[in-house]
Design a protein around this nucleic acid. Sequence first.
DNA 1: CCCAGGCTTGAATCCCGAT
DNA 2: CATCGGGATTCAAGCCTGG
Lengths: 359, 359
Amino acid sequence: MGLPVDTIIEGDCLEALKKLPDRSVDLVFADPPYNLQLGGDLLRPDNSKVDAVDDHWDQFESFEAYDAFTRAWLKECRRVLKDDGAIWVIGSYHNIFRVGVAVQDLGFWILNDIVWRKSNPMPNFKGTRFTNAHETLIWASKSRGGRRYTFNYDAMKMANDELQMRSDWTLPLCTGDERLKDGSGAKAHPTQKPEALLHRVILASTKPGDVILDPFFGTGTTGAVARRLGRKFVGIEREAEYAALARKRIAQVTPATADEMAVTGSKRAEPRVPFGTILEAGLLRPGDVLYCPKGRNAARVRADGSLVVGEVSGSIHKVGALVQSAPACNGWTYWHFKSDKGLAPIDVLRAKVRSQLPA
Amino acid sequence: MGLPVDTIIEGDCLEALKKLPDRSVDLVFADPPYNLQLGGDLLRPDNSKVDAVDDHWDQFESFEAYDAFTRAWLKECRRVLKDDGAIWVIGSYHNIFRVGVAVQDLGFWILNDIVWRKSNPMPNFKGTRFTNAHETLIWASKSRGGRRYTFNYDAMKMANDELQMRSDWTLPLCTGDERLKDGSGAKAHPTQKPEALLHRVILASTKPGDVILDPFFGTGTTGAVARRLGRKFVGIEREAEYAALARKRIAQVTPATADEMAVTGSKRAEPRVPFGTILEAGLLRPGDVLYCPKGRNAARVRADGSLVVGEVSGSIHKVGALVQSAPACNGWTYWHFKSDKGLAPIDVLRAKVRSQLPA
DNA sequence: CCCAGGCTTGAATCCCGAT
DNA sequence: CATCGGGATTCAAGCCTGG
């Protein structure tokens, strides 16, 4: 059987993969189940319920079962890849370590791990952990030192304001009109990926006309972006509903002219510098004293970047407002530290930290 | 043998770990060998040679050998951890996936993976990949649903300008004066971590006085920051040179006072004030009426601190939940009393009582 | 038509001490 | 160890509604 290009194969991922010919695709992009292992319901502070990913396809009996599944589909993907091909897999801390080990053990050669920093992640509602604000992608060639993989270095550099593209990408979640809805207006797929992410992946690691295989096609983000960028795709999807939506979606895509392929700009976030960073950088130490411009009011710095005056504590802004009985206060310009040249605003420390951050 | 606190144990990591007592440390921070599999020398565009990590301690024969080593030291660390303890491990894509799987397989429970975004990474000189601009840390508790790990949520939030701290941390590499040099002015250790990174780790996940074990102590960044923040450490280091440098470095650190170590505390830790106390203090009287924020629902206060609405009575929380048909409710913020300035939440009365409690 | 303010939502391993 | 119940907990975007 030849390779069924620009087609969605409906059915089990493994069985479908086994029917594809050896060395026939240029790139694999895979967004497998994450095996989340969630507990009970999670309520927001306003008591609304978080719409959890509790679909049957994300349930595995054990790590062993997940590993076996992972190795099986990865092995087939490797067989189907051309010798100069490469693979991308996306995941979270729940599964990505297991995926990474399988990738290495099967003989792939990791080129980068990429961090997708979400500009608008869901917060940690209960205050129990750090906000889980990123996902991880692994990019690997078929083998170490084999035939050369594709990397469009200059296109990536161009897309990043002429600086080398880094391993951390800041992109928003898939929301708004881009997010596919079902008949009732609810999201059609629980984990639809943003097209911007696929845009960067495909632009970085394929050439026009290349064939991209996505064994967990879902609602077809890979196919839609591939088509828009003048690449071909092969999708595998078990759920008929998702496949139908994907077909409709891809049919609406107009392939871009060479012209239009230029850049989706990378939103560069303001380098906000929290006051706590000043302490981490060692520019101030816990216990140091800050003064108001005239040196009258004094406050003590704590290790977490809060200030203390008498009984009250809070951020540099809050405490600054408080000691002045003002409605608000810019702590960066109000508070001063003692330097060898007398009192200086802590804003100069922020400037020092900023000068070490990427633009 | 007891736990040798604020000490560097010179010797093999595994042998030393085996001598430490069960359930004796609060936190493990580990920066193990990354098992970098470098090819030949790497040259910069100007033909200067990149100073690679090619130390013998970073060489392993195979993935299997690295896995066996990883599991061995992780297993000992888990034994040595208290039941409410936690572990941090830092690595790059070369090893972090293998570490992560070992962590999961040994029964640790991953809490977050944290991305350290380097603000000043080494560029990719060959233009063959994305600039490798981050490393990954895994934070895991000793077991799933075991005794509660330490997370100073409020301190982290304060250190991040009152926004939840996210899983991506932007920090510069260890350079300048902080970077230890050997006699000839070359860097003393190839992978010295920045103190800012340890500052955040330790502030987030330990309490003052806690003991932090670092089985790959190197030049003692963990020890130096632990000492500065009023924590204790146990370091294990095989290379006598590194250990000597670490000792000298740590001796120069001035520990923070208890005062200086204090950070923003959590509300959960504040003393409980039963609602009845508000009545006992005369701040409200039996028969007074409380209102929901918009003034629509009203409830009558009884002498024992219960509320009555129509036929039902109960705690401020229960009745609050009931009148809203909500699964839960914080009565302190939901119910309001009539003051001369309009409706005010009864939480201000609790604050009044708390401020009069003995320290 | 625009703007301000409110509502909704996103791959989430999401409370904790007292009894 | 399970249960009970007090009461703590959210950020950025996009969409909608009302003025």
